[in-house]
Every structure is written in C-alpha cells, then in structure tokens.
Simulated scan of single mutants.
Amino acid sequence: MKGIVEERAIELGEYIIESKATVRKAAKKFGVSKSTVHKDVAERLKYVDPQLYKRVKTVLEINKAQRHIRGGLATKQKYSAERLTARK
C-alpha cells in the first residue's frame, strides 16, 4: 500500500505535467515547500512511478532552461512599473 508521501509525489507529478508548472508554482498550489516538491518529484517519484518520473523530469528540465528568461522578464516588468509610478 502506498503511503501519503508517495500519493503526494504522484499528484505533484501529474500536476506538473498537466500544467507545465514550475516547482515553485506546484509548491504554492499544494501548500508545501519547494524542497518538498523537489524531493517528491526528483527522488521519491523515481521509485513509485518511473514512467511518470521521466515525464516530470522533462518538464522540469524545460523550466530550468527557461528560468533565466522568466527572471529577466520579471526584472524588466518590475522596473517598468517603478518608472511609471515615478512619473506620476
């Protein structure tokens, strides 16, 4: 019988695949820490459901490759907003 931790790992994995979510987004959705999400999908899921693990790993690798782009866009948006409020 699977425990609660294993079930959570499967739920997290399915959520990440369905929504192409980042670890941070999944953590917020499930109310757990980023470390917990990462441990569940990167370590536990490998033994509980190897096929799901491979699919999740692919999504997380894509997210990791795009991370610097999202960070740059967030910084640009932050300073654009500050510039607009400074003009008023």
Rank of each mutant, 00 (worst) to 15 (best):
E11P: 00
E11W: 07
E11L: 10
E11A: 13
E11Q: 10
L12T: 03
L12V: 01
L12M: 14
L12A: 12
L12N: 10
G13I: 00
G13W: 00
G13F: 01
E14K: 10
E14D: 14
E14M: 12
E14A: 11
Y15E: 10
I16W: 04
I16L: 08
I17R: 07
I17S: 04
E18T: 13
E18C: 13
E18F: 04
S19Y: 15
K20F: 11
K20P: 00
A21Y: 02
A21R: 02
T22C: 02
T22H: 00
T22Q: 03
V23Q: 04
R24E: 14
R24Y: 06
R24P: 01
R24L: 05
A26C: 03
A26H: 05
A26G: 06
A26T: 13
A26D: 08
A27C: 04
K28F: 13
K28Y: 07
K28L: 15
K28D: 12
K28E: 14
K28H: 14
K29I: 05
K29C: 03
K29W: 05
F30D: 04
F30C: 05
F30N: 06
G31N: 08
G31M: 09
V32R: 09
V32S: 01
S33A: 08
S33L: 08
S33F: 07
K34I: 08
K34C: 05
K34W: 01
K34F: 02
K34N: 14
K34Y: 13
S35Q: 11
S35M: 14
T36L: 06
T36S: 06
K39A: 01
K39G: 01
D40K: 02
D40Y: 03
D40H: 06
D40Q: 03
V41H: 05
V41P: 08
V41S: 08
A42N: 09
A42T: 13
A42G: 05
A42W: 01
E43C: 05
E43W: 03
R44L: 06
L45D: 04
L45A: 07
K46C: 09
K46Q: 15
K46R: 15
K46F: 06
K46A: 12
Y47H: 09
Y47G: 01
Y47D: 05
Y47P: 00
Y47R: 12
V48H: 02
D49R: 08
D49P: 06
D49V: 00
D49F: 03
D49W: 04
P50F: 02
P50A: 03
Q51L: 15
Q51K: 13
Q51A: 15
Q51N: 11
Q51R: 13
L52D: 09
Y53Q: 11
Y53T: 12
K54D: 15
K54H: 12
R55P: 02
R55T: 04
R55K: 14
R55N: 10
R55W: 00
V56S: 06
V56H: 02
K57T: 13
K57V: 10
T58S: 13
V59W: 02
V59D: 01
V59N: 03
L60Y: 02
L60F: 04
E61V: 03
E61A: 07
E61M: 11
E61R: 11
I62V: 08
I62W: 02
I62L: 09
N63Q: 14
N63E: 14
N63R: 15
K64Q: 10
K64V: 03
A65L: 13
A65I: 15
A65Q: 11
Q66L: 15
Q66I: 15
Q66V: 14
Q66R: 14
